[in-house]
């Protein structure tokens, strides 16, 4: 047993650089997140689409092995195109669910009992606080989105040869940039809603509601105006359109690309505005 002197002394040892202290928030939050075995199991499940894609890519280049299963070889031979077209969506949906599960408690725990006041009393700014929390989401979503996406692409590039890589390099860019856009939008939205609503369960409901309501309202506006102007409000369609343009595919929205970007920018800026209003060491009473 450690025997401690019940006295007080100041600290005169080394201190960590202030620029990196926000990562303490990230580290503690990640540890909290993975303390739940249920979440850990879900997170592993989120990796399955990417694992399946890697296997499919591998078999598509080893058709001799599949010939014995009759017919599978011809299907797998066409697999790469199909996989790269759909893998983004298979990764993005679980990533969204991970963000919805993880983000609300990140903020709610701090604002619920005014811990934000003692956190921001340290040499850490509100911007760094948000960065520390956003880093949690980024670090959780990256291994189930763009990292396996690029690994899958790399495997196909390795097996498909140099010409295939040169012809399809935009797929790699689409995976990286598309997921980055998706992560930024989802993270900002999740943090903002969590800061606004504060109760984790309600925040989660609100996040799902935002996507559903924006889709319904967008379609209604499109129907009433007989145009595509409602797509400005349709968040998931805006994201899908931006991403599909990266892949060189036809987007679901008839609006021009800048209009879809405008929707995403509005969501991100709105989220940052909410965070600026709501995340304060003390709330000023007016």
């Amino acid at each position: 047993m450690v025997v401690r002197d019940r006295g007080w002394r100041a600290w005169d040892g080394p201190v960590t650089p202030t620029s990196r202290r926000f990562l303490v928030l990230t580290r503690f939050a990640l540890k909290d997140v993975f303390e739940s075995r249920v979440f850990l199991a879900f997170y592993i499940l989120c990796l399955l689409p990417s694992a399946a894609a890697v296997l499919a890519i591998y078999f598509s280049h080893n058709t001799q092995f599949l010939e014995q299963f009759g017919g599978l070889d011809s299907w797998f031979a066409k697999a790469p195109d199909w996989i790269f077209l759909h893998l983004f969506g298979w990764q993005a949906m679980p990533a969204f669910l991970v963000a919805v599960i993880v983000t609300p408690p990140l903020i709610a725990a701090d604002v619920g009992n005014n811990a934000l006041g003692v956190i921001l009393a340290r040499a850490i700014s509100r911007r760094e606080y948000v960065l520390g929390k956003a880093a949690v989401v980024f670090l959780l979503l990256s291994p189930i989105t763009w990292i396996p996406g690029l690994l899958t692409f790399s495997l196909q590039a390795l097996l498909g040869g140099g010409q295939w890589t040169i012809d399809n390099i935009r797929i790699a860019v689409a995976f990286f940039v598309g997921h980055l856009v998706w992560i930024v939008v989802v993270t900002t939205l999740c943090l903002a809603v969590s800061a606004w609503i504060r109760l984790a369960a309600f925040s989660r409901g609100a996040l799902l509601a935002i996507f559903i309501i924006s889709a319904v309202v967008g379609r209604l506006v499109n129907g009433v105006t007989r145009s595509s102007i409602g797509d400005l409000l349709h968040l998931s369609r805006a994201i899908e359109s931006v991403v599909l343009r990266f892949f060189g595919a036809v987007p679901p929205s008839a609006l021009p690309s800048p209009a879809n970007w405008l929707t995403l920018a509005a969501v991100v800026l709105g989220g940052l505005w909410v965070l600026n209003i709501k995340l304060r060491a003390v709330q000023e009473i007016r």
Binding site: A109, D110, G112, N114, G117, A123, I124
Partner: peptide
């Protein structure tokens, strides 16, 4: 901020920790 220790008047804790 780095040379100050602050004990606020109101509750200030993370209940789950």
């Amino acid at each position: 901020c780095s040379i100050i220790g602050y004990m606020p008047e109101d509750d200030a804790y993370i209940s789950g920790m």
